[in-house]
């Protein structure tokens, strides 16, 4: 099986002489990323900075990030998983024919050249964006890239990491893990954490209409989720904590305005490489923080009789 082989961004800054962006457009979506962490930085190991690094962009179209890359590989839409799987076969010297490669929109020669460069690198890194992880194949596309990176370690140092969007998704993921053992897609209805993406993940729960209430903190699913999910949010009592008026707050029954985290509320933000950063507010807000609102709701609920009259039971035969 594969795995997840990754590093903190400083390692990329210090060491990565071979950088792949796959299905992401950092030039436009992560504007500080190139200058702060990857391309432009000089280090003890890469004294000439950008000149010491090789940058490859793999995407379905030539985005602005292509200008920053040394090599641009245009993969046919929907063929990322195939391309990554071919690369996994080729690094192990398995045979893949020219015709088989052709369906990805690239040639065997180009891929062999790419692999040669990857194997010759001292420290390779692969970043992937939503162009990979949110298109057909989703988690398996990401798994393909992570597995390729893991397997590359038979030849040289290689790591991979997602280019995550939105504020502090990583933080939510990290905390859920230490408190429940799972990163997301968790149900606590039986009094203990259970995990099953697809069953308990928010979008699936909403699309199936499996919930009779929604409590939303610092997210705007009303802007991004499929219509059946949004319709269900409008149907059930939805409570939103958000500094702003959002698509979701407009369809909610209750919107509590909170202080914006990091700007007027302190705390910790986890960077996409899971490094915790202190959030030091620059402004004061008349509104309470999300944390305070949640704590006060919790204290009020605690005054009411416990709904859990009997100890719930674990689901048996988990193995």
């Amino acid at each position: 099986m594969g795995g997840k082989v990754t590093c903190t961004l400083g390692e990329v800054k210090n060491r990565a002489d071979f950088i792949v962006y796959w299905g992401g457009n950092p030039a436009e979506c992560h504007p500080r990323h190139f200058t702060k962490y990857t391309l432009m930085q000089k280090s003890k190991f890469l004294p000439r900075g950008r000149k010491d690094r090789t940058v490859v962009l793999v995407d379905i179209r030539e985005t602005k990030s292509a200008k920053a890359a040394d090599h641009f590989l245009q993969v046919r839409p929907g063929k990322d998983f195939e391309l990554l799987t071919i690369l996994r076969a080729l690094i192990k010297d398995q045979k893949v024919s020219e015709e088989q490669v052709a369906e990805t929109g690239l040639s065997l020669e180009v891929l062999k050249d790419l692999i040669e460069k990857m194997k010759a690198a001292k420290f390779g890194v692969m970043f992937f964006g939503m162009g990979l992880s949110m298109t057909r194949g989703k988690h398996m596309n990401a798994a393909a890239l992570l597995t390729l990176a893991a397997e590359m370690n038979a030849f040289t140092k290689f790591v991979a990491m997602p280019m995550r969007g939105h504020g502090n998704v990583t933080g939510a993921d990290v905390i859920m893990r230490w408190q429940t053992g799972y990163p997301f897609g968790i149900s606590l209805n039986r009094g203990y954490p259970r995990y099953n993406p697809g069953e308990f993940s928010t979008v699936d729960v909403l699309v199936r209409g499996d919930t009779d209430c929604a409590f939303i903190i610092g997210a705007d699913p009303g802007a991004t989720m499929p219509k059946p999910a949004i319709d269900h949010l409008a149907k059930v009592p939805t409570i939103v904590l958000d500094p702003h008026v959002t698509h979701t707050s407009r369809l909610s029954r209750v919107h509590i305005t909170t202080a914006p985290a990091g700007i007027a509320a302190p705390g910790t933000g986890y960077r996409m490489d899971e490094v915790p950063m202190p959030l030091k507010p620059a402004l004061q807000s008349p509104y309470p923080s999300d944390e305070e609102v949640v704590r006060r709701i919790r204290e009020t609920i605690a005054l009411r009789p416990d709904w859990m009259t009997n100890q719930p039971q674990m689901i048996e035969a988990q193995i």
């Binding site: 594969g2 082989v5 590093c7 903190t8 893991a150 790591v159 899971e274």
Partner: peptide
């Protein structure tokens, strides 16, 4: 041949 996780921390 089982799952592998690796996390290098800068410096």
């Amino acid at each position: 041949g089982r799952k592998w996780g690796n996390l290098d921390v800068e410096n």
